[in-house]
Design a protein around this nucleic acid. Structure first.
Lengths: 344, 344
DNA sequence: TCGCCAACCCAAAGCGCTTTGGAGAGACCG
DNA sequence: CGGTCTCTCCAAAGCGCTTTGGGTTGGCGA
């Protein structure tokens, strides 16, 4: 069933039927009702391909998901972010176009999207310090929103969490508990957020006249194995740290495993603070858990960020001439059972 | 730059330019070269909207991601599956259209996709025993592939892992180690795979004249919290199990946490066997870990399944008249450090 | 009665591509 | 040397929608 057939069966022109369905005022209410009823009865939906061509809008947003590392891994954080954004897209009638590309192919992917006009805008995730995608998208004139920031975040729209403050706060918390030997298990420091978190920790240490121990400052893709092995290595060293500051709940699980395997108790012998993106299947929240959260964490829902990012991006598409939208989200420090006073 | 402009700048017709770019034989090789060079120079890509309308093909595959449970959670397993499928789509020039819908809205989502012709085929994940999507998609005439099976899997194409055999094998393994008090932490048993896994366990028990203890047969959304709380509850009961059979590595992490918090050691006091989907950030594999896998597990890469599913689906779209494709994958039982002889 | 204005509705022209159905120019053949 | 192919290329007709630029009708004021 297409528009032509539908309009013929109604004895109306395509114009009128189209207008009736799209809610234009030039059609009598009674006629509209009739059209809408007939469309519903015939199970008619405008062909999206034709509509996209006619309107010149794709009604789709591109997300490029890089497959990182030697194993081309997919970050579960992206999944939750996309879930949040997808909710908003669905609500607003947009499609989510997901493009899976090798880590070095993201630029080509965006270029392609711009050139063949398959999307109305794109979402940029996990920017590096000096991310080439930002100038690229500016050059291409494709509306975009960055989740995170680059080193010079003045001239585009973004949403980010206050990473420096979050990790400064987390470090302060550990210092207040008496910990002096604190390891940082950071994400890849080519990524902007990781560098900010490191800075947060360093600032907190510096404020008390402490210097970070380079041996304890680690950085890699945030897998469970990374947490497990790095923590194991540090715990087995001559001067093991008493506390771990971890950039994600996933490596923090690995740290906990390493701690447990050595007969130590998390929260008593070893303290762990991590950043918690509130991944739904790895829920650390105390609201649902009477015993409280497992990890003490700086918490910020990546899902909620996805939702908000989608809203901003769609708004940017609708109103291209507005000033840059730049939102900084504070995190909570949630107390869990993974921290305790430094052992004496 | 569009086709018209490009062809004018070349002094050729749109027909010829289109054919040259699409590799049709009616155009002289020399001319083709000239066209291709000009297109590259002008950074021209055919407008995908127009192309889709003209060809009648969407060059897109729909994935519907249900947000399950009260919290509308997003299953990280879907993410890895999609990553695998997305690789294949990208390679074959297809887009991946991701639709995020509430759990009860999947049917409407597929119906919409069929009616407005926005995709050439759809992927069905996590089918229930008597999944309404199968007859629906048959009725709609939309090519589809099911990852998993329903209770009567004769008349459509699917790819599944041998769940019964996997969990029978896992149960046998625990029984051989002397365990008699085995708890099952299953996924939601409205889903077909969960029921098959349960059956596998029950068959293995029955074969040795054992009956499952209803108190130890649990079933829910496979979060870390679910594993943690259920295991905690069982461990604190009068007759705690000595082994846990868990449907996913995520709740298995929760079980391990509950075990650790009670001062027990996983693999010595309590054994855990889980199904491992080989999620990239929760890698349990021994290949990369000199100390071996953390969990003893029935293992099957969900990412690889996604890749293969995509291949099958695209093939189904290209050749609609072929017989049903039905692939059953066996799992490996990987020995890890989470199992040991039953304590006496 | 005429003119004007809403209120409704329509024919037709795109949107930018693919594809059908030739057409012209040589090449080859008997 | 006319006829038949093969090689190249082109004009024009869609694909199914939206949107422009009117047309027709009836009501109402002058």
């Amino acid at each position: 069933m297409n528009l032509k057939q539908l309009s013929q069966s109604l004895g109306l022109s395509q114009t009128t039927v189209s207008r009736a369905l799209n809610g234009y005022p030039e059609v009598r209410e009674e006629t509209r009702q009739r059209v809408v009823a007939a469309a519903a009865a015939a199970n008619y939906t405008p062909n999206s391909r034709a509509r996209r061509l006619a309107t010149g809008r794709s009604m789709a947003i591109g997300h490029v998901m890089p497959l990182t590392g030697r194993e081309e891994m997919v970050n579960p954080i992206f999944a939750d972010f996309i879930a949040g954004a997808g909710e908003v897209y669905a609500r607003e009638g947009y499609d989510l176009l997901l493009s899976m590309v090798p880590a070095n192919g993201t630029e080509a992917a965006y270029r392609q999207m711009a050139s063949n006009a398959s999307v109305d805008g794109v979402m940029v995730q996990a920017p590096t310090l000096d991310d080439p995608r930002v100038p690229l998208l500016q050059e291409l004139g494709l509306p975009f929103l960055v989740h995170g920031r680059t080193a010079s975040p003045e001239a585009y729209s973004w949403l980010d969490v206050a990473n420096v403050r979050a990790f400064r706060r987390a470090t302060d918390f550990l210092l207040d508990l008496g910990h002096r030997k604190i390891a940082l298990l950071n994400g890849q420091e080519s990524l902007d957020f990781a560098l900010r978190r490191r800075r947060g920790m360093e600032e907190a240490l510096a404020e008390r006249g402490l210097a970070p121990n380079p041996l304890w400052m680690r950085s890699d893709i945030m897998t469970e194995q990374y947490g497990y092995r790095t923590a194991g290595e540090l715990l087995d060293s001559d001067t093991p740290p008493t506390a771990f500051l971890v950039s994600s709940i996933i490596p923090a699980i690995g740290v906990r495993r390493a701690v447990g395997e050595r007969g130590l108790r998390t929260g008593r012998d070893i303290s762990i603070v991590c950043h918690d993106d509130a991944l739904s299947y790895l829920d650390n929240d105390g609201l649902n858990a009477p015993e409280g959260p497992a990890f003490t964490s700086t918490r910020s829902s990546i899902r909620a960020a996805g939702r908000r990012c989608a809203e901003i991006l769609l708004d940017l598409i609708d109103n291209p001439d507005q000033p840059f939208v730049q939102e900084l989200w504070e995190t909570d420090l949630t107390l869990g059972r993974s921290t305790g006073p430094a052992p004496t």
